[in-house]
């Protein structure tokens, strides 16, 4: 009797697991959302180009370039690559590891500055 109950639990658990898998259906969303994102990507790219065209400089140039870049990247990953609709486990597994790259970038920026200063002092000597 006990084993039968166990079997039934397994069977129920399995049904739930299958229901949680929308494998056959996949990622189906209204076409309008893609068209909107598509248009937005064009707008952001045009703005990025205009930053260069109008010779913006300094902090303004940089903050705008980075902002448009992150917006474009975010929309591509979230909507076009469907990450917004994936489960949190997959989001974490894919989006968290690249964050360690920020440390690499920081270290290499410091290293580059150091090399630059070393070269300057070597040339000035």
């Amino acid at each position: 009797m006990a084993t039968t109950v166990g079997h039934m639990e397994t069977a129920t658990g399995h049904t739930q697991a299958t229901a949680a898998h929308p494998k056959a259906e996949g990622q189906q969303h209204p076409i309008a959302i893609y068209l909107w994102i598509w248009a937005l990507l064009f707008v952001f790219s045009t703005f990025s180009y205009l930053i260069d065209y109008f010779h913006l400089h300094g902090l303004l140039r940089w903050s705008l370039i980075i902002t448009f870049m992150l917006l474009k990247a975010g929309f591509i990953v979230a909507i076009f690559m469907h990450m917004a609709w994936e489960r949190l486990a997959l989001k974490f597994a894919i989006l968290v590891p690249p964050l360690v790259l920020l440390i690499l970038i920081l270290l290499m920026a410091i290293e580059g500055d150091y090399t630059f200063l070393t070269r300057l002092t070597a040339f000035l000597r």
Binding site: L101, L104, I105, M108, A109, T115, F116, R119
Partner: peptide, 15 residues
């Protein structure tokens, strides 16, 4: 990222 980071590094460090 390795490519872009090495690019950043050489661009910062060149005189």
């Amino acid at each position: 990222t390795c490519f872009l980071t090495s690019y950043m590094n050489v661009r910062i460090s060149t005189t």
